[in-house]
Design a protein around this nucleic acid. Structure first.
Length: 297
RNA sequence: GCAGGGAUAGCGAAGUGGCCAAACGCAUGUGACUGUAAAUCACACGACUUAUGUCUUCGGGGGUUCGAAUCCCUCUCCCUGCA
């Protein structure tokens, strides 16, 4: 197990977090250019191959020659978890640092970020057969199992995922509030009306870039998999099935992205270790913060 | 013009004398979340609020009643059949 915090030779890492559409990727690329860095995406959807347009994965042109990690790691339908991300991040950061470059972790998947930042200790992975069995139980049955096992119902006793996890792993995990040392965490947040505008424009651009074809081929190839349960993919899927028209699909995409942004905001807001960038000249603020940070590490 | 149906909170839609500040769905808001997390789930949602608290609502106005979103009269608007 990787020890943290007290490790003297841990590489310095810059982390950029924020809600979808807040401009994380662009900021990270710019910082990577200025500080000789490489980007590690902490994003539960861009890990999938072929999910490009709908996840707003930066194109080769967008990347401006900056090396990106964490994209296209598995194919839709494969399982990729927070634990997998944690391992990948750890390994990749060491590699980047060994090349004397600055690792920049960028993403909106709060669980991934925290797994890295707070060195989450995950419970032992259960056998596949156990997981498969639990998958078929209703919430009521899951609750019954939990109580029969002498466990306490979780705060969200109606959430099948939390119930399953409890049954798979046993005790509640330990809390970690001490972040990894040598780490600077930058947060991006924009006013809601502006975010709505940006997301609306982005959705429009995605359709123009061929989102429908992308979804069509992904569905044909992988079927209705978990990975495709994301705002744009779900909406376009419904459109392709003829359930809704194009306008409705766009509307839902925007709506679900905004809801996602809200959840991301809620997640990150409780993190006291984030340096939130103010309204204007975000790049300048970020540059300044990173410069100071690097001088000390 | 005659006959009939309808107007309910942001929208849709229940409710046909007291248990109604008013079901339910959508939209929205807030939050939880250590192994699929762009997921999953909880709560709030007339106003004021600490409230099992007060106040103002069910198109407008006027009645009946101890009590009305619910009954009666009337006005306004909408839909349908006949003219």
């Amino acid at each position: 197990m990787a020890s943290r915090g007290s490790e003297p030779n841990e590489p310095a890492v810059v982390v950029v977090v924020g809600e979808t559409g807040s401009g994380k990727s662009a900021l990270a690329i710019e910082l990577a250019r200025q500080f000789n860095g490489e980007v590690v995406a902490a994003d539960s959807r861009t890990v999938y191959r072929g999910m490009d347009i709908g996840t707003a994965k930066p194109t080769m042109e967008d990347r401006q020659g900056i090396t990106h990690h964490g994209f296209d790691v598995v194919k839709p339908g494969d399982q990729f978890t927070a634990y997998d991300f944690q391992q990948l991040a750890e390994r990749t950061i060491a590699e980047i640092a060994s090349r004397n470059k600055l690792p920049l972790i960028v993403g909106g998947t709060g669980l991934y970020i925290d797994a890295f930042l707070y060195d989450y200790i995950f419970r032992p992975k259960p056998a596949a057969s156990v997981r498969a069995e639990l998958l078929n139980l209703s919430v009521l049955e899951l609750q019954k199992r939990v109580m029969e096992s002498g466990l306490q119902l979780p705060g969200n006793a109606q959430n099948p995922r939390h119930l399953r996890r409890l049954l798979e792993g046993g005790d509640t995990p330990m809390q970690h509030n001490v972040p990894r040392s040598h780490t600077l965490v930058l947060g991006l947040c924009i006013a809601r009306p502006e975010l709505k505008q940006r997301i609306t424009d982005r959705v429009e651009a995605m359709f123009a870039a061929g989102l429908i074809d992308e979804v069509k081929s992904l569905l044909a190839r992988y079927g209705d998999v978990e990975a495709l349960r994301a705002p744009g993919y779900k909406a376009v899927g419904a459109f392709l099935k003829g359930e809704i028209d194009l306008e409705e699909a766009k509307r839902r995409f925007v709506r679900d992205d905004l809801r996602l942004a809200k959840r991301q905001r809620t997640w990150f807001r409780r993190n006291p270790n984030i340096h939130w960038l103010g309204e204007s000249s975000k790049l300048e603020q970020a540059t300044e913060l990173v410069s100071v940070f690097l001088q000390r590490h």
